[in-house]
Simulated assay, not measured.
Amino acid sequence: MYLALANQSNQSIAYEFIFRAFSTIPEIQRLLFAFFLLLYLTILFGNVSIIWVACTDHSLRVPMYFFLGNLSFLEICYTTVVVPQLLSSILDVHRPIPFASCGIQMFFFVALGSTDCFLLAVMAYDRYVAICHPLRYSLIMTWQVCSWLVAGSLILALVLSLELTVLIFTLPFCGHQPEINHFLCDVPPVLRLACADTHVHQTVLYSVGVMVLTIPFVLICISYIYIVTAILRIRSTTGRQQAFSTCSSHLTVVIIQYGCCSLVYLRPKTDSSEDDDRHLALMYTFVTPLLNPLIYSLRNKDVKQALKKAMVRTNDSQV
């Protein structure tokens, strides 16, 4: 009894963490730094371009592109929460992240990622109204309704993220500098470092995952059942192709985003899943924000035309 109490009293409580290094070889570190920096700059350029054309082109001032512009803004914020810390830890593998900074990163990462998922569901609803109720579209999807849908997605995500982050960081983390087997302060890897019972916390995490991923995904699937049914009733082949091309871009982003996130947050945890989570996190942290502007600009005729007109205007102004 005395020895147990002595060991517990001598056990230090962590006030900072370190991330597991991708590599400790200087040459590989420099290559990784350049690679992730290039990815980040490409993500910034692509998503800023989408926001720019959505704001400046009058033909794109409709709810669909209002949501797309907000989605691109979220992608920029989402990666900005992660990349500076990632680049810093690549160059200095022993650099710790303070307890408070880790909590702040987790809060914004979860909040922005959840808002992203909610907004994809909102975009599916927008497509449902546009295709299934075209005559009432302008009456249903007013600018006030669109603004409230975006604001509601953000507020709900902030509330869920705050509750989850506070719950996680009330746990004790033992050791001098516990190593997070990840490149960011995400919930599952940080939760594994707690030196206390985490069954309640795991249950809350799973419940939040269901609210953020499962429920919106089910609503998206229901929307697309109605959408596909309505598209198949269109007699014009051109009309069907146009409707399918409009929805295919959104559906591609949904599959990538929800698929990777569900594998991380909703599947049962095993000892071998830690490294898998790290690799999957690279997908929804870098690949999805990178593909989002590419998918919408390459598969969407309106966005392609708007980008071409914007480039022409820029060239004319320089001349």
Rank of each mutant, 00 (worst) to 15 (best):
H279I: 12
T170K: 15
H182G: 08
V287A: 13
I220A: 10
T198E: 04
T314R: 08
T165Y: 06
A54K: 00
V303H: 03
Y265K: 02
I225N: 13
T115L: 06
V53C: 06
M64Y: 11
V312K: 07
H199Q: 11
V150F: 10
A6S: 11
V303Y: 05
A151V: 11
I234V: 14
Y65R: 00
I295T: 02
S9A: 06
S207P: 11
L156N: 11
N181L: 09
G103W: 03
S223D: 13
Y296S: 06
L205A: 14
R127K: 14
C117P: 02
E27F: 01
P289N: 09
A157S: 15
S88F: 07
Q11T: 11
S138K: 15
T237Q: 13
A6G: 11
T288K: 05
I231Q: 02
G46N: 01
H176N: 09
R30F: 09
F169R: 12
L86F: 00
I255C: 13
C55I: 00
A306N: 00
V48L: 09
G209V: 12
M123F: 08
T198M: 07
G239S: 02
S88G: 05
Y206I: 02
F45D: 08
T229Y: 06
H176L: 07
S59T: 08
Y258R: 05
K304M: 06
P84D: 00
L251H: 08
R278L: 11
P216R: 09
A21T: 01
S153Q: 01
F99I: 05
M64W: 05
P96N: 10
F99G: 01
V48E: 05
P189R: 07
L266W: 00
M141F: 08
S249A: 15
C174R: 10
